[in-house]
């Protein structure tokens, strides 16, 4: 099973022949990802990494049966590339770009209404099901197969938590980065829902940051709908109000946006909360022990 992507996923890369796409396509294949080709407009008919290159996503889908796309298209053209993927029938679209204009995302989210494609990102490290499928830019060697589902806004903080768990012998069922922008294709709740339904996931880690209502909304959803335990962390305890901390979405605009307010709310809703970013791994281990889940 796992969440959103697995060993049966047929992956294409949009912006296939670019430097980062090339590097991460190779890395993805090295862990067993079934990459079936790529799209670079104008280079259709050629081959790259021994795989076919197409001019359009529609052609790529028709020729390869691809159902997942890793979108490495630069921000100005990103939203268009995402619509192209959805239009072509891709089921899971993952977009890495950092800097997609927000009005493009507003239109894109409207475009998705009534369509069943899952969009992950933008501004995300992507998604990985260890040993089966990587669609993104994360360092795949730290992701070992296990029982923990992890979902985060930040990429590097996802790596941090994963490495802490790895050091304690805890592996990952699937890791999903929802991205650091104010408007994400997929929110925390959608991913929690998928983890709750996934038999390979036994516990979930949710890593948020300052700004926006998503973390608390997700914690509330978890309390009402989940049987699996959830561990939460929110970065930005030391962040000053009104300053955007790198991510477009990470800004304290009101009292509810602060890291402590969000973690207090999570705790009140029954989540396990790691108050220190260096303690995420050990908090997961403690939660597993308390819940009788064998690591």
């Amino acid at each position: 099973m796992s969440v959103f992507v697995n060993k049966n996923s047929k992956v294409i890369f949009q912006g296939f022949t670019g430097e980062h796409a090339t590097f991460h396509a190779q890395d993805a294949m090295s862990i067993g990802t079934h990459v079936v080709g790529g799209v670079t407009p104008g280079k259709g008919g050629s081959t790259h990494l021994g795989l076919p290159v197409f001019d359009t996503v529609a052609e790529a889908v028709a020729a390869t049966g691809a159902d997942v796309s890793a979108v490495f298209v630069p921000p100005p053209f990103n939203a268009d590339a995402l619509m192209e993927a959805i239009d072509a029938g891709i089921k899971v679209v993952v977009t890495i770009a950092d800097g997609v204009p927000i009005h493009d995302m507003i239109r894109l989210q409207r475009y998705r209404v009534g369509k069943d494609a899952i969009l992950i990102g933008p501004n995300t490290p992507g998604i990985i099901t260890p040993g089966e499928c990587k669609v993104g830019i994360m360092p795949s060697h730290i992701y070992q197969k296990g029982k923990v589902g992890i979902v985060s806004r930040s990429g590097t903080l996802n790596y941090e938590a994963t490495e802490q768990m790895l050091a304690l012998g805890l592996g990952i069922s699937t890791s999903v980065g929802i991205g650091g922008d104010p408007i994400n294709g997929t929110d925390f709740v959608t991913v929690l829902k998928a983890f709750e339904a996934d038999p390979e996931t036994e516990i979930v880690v949710m890593i948020g940051e300052i700004g926006g209502p998503q973390e608390v909304a997700a914690a509330r959803w978890a309390k009402e709908n989940m049987k699996k335990p959830v561990v939460g962390f929110v970065a930005g305890l030391a962040a000053p109000p009104g300053r955007r901390m790198g991510h477009a979405g990470a800004i304290i605009a009101s009292e509810a946006d602060t890291a402590s307010a969000k973690m207090d709310a999570m705790e009140a809703l029954g989540l396990y909360v790691a108050r220190n970013p260096a303690h995420i791994g050990q908090t997961v281990l403690r939660a597993m022990q308390e819940q009788g889940i064998t690591p």
Binding site: G155, L157, E209, L237, A238, G246, H247, N276, P277
Partner: peptide
């Protein structure tokens, strides 16, 4: 000096803690 906004925030948090 950190890479990624989330890890950068978390590093400030760890120092503070």
């Amino acid at each position: 000096i950190v890479n990624g906004a989330g890890l950068a925030m978390a590093s400030l948090d760890a120092i503070t803690l």
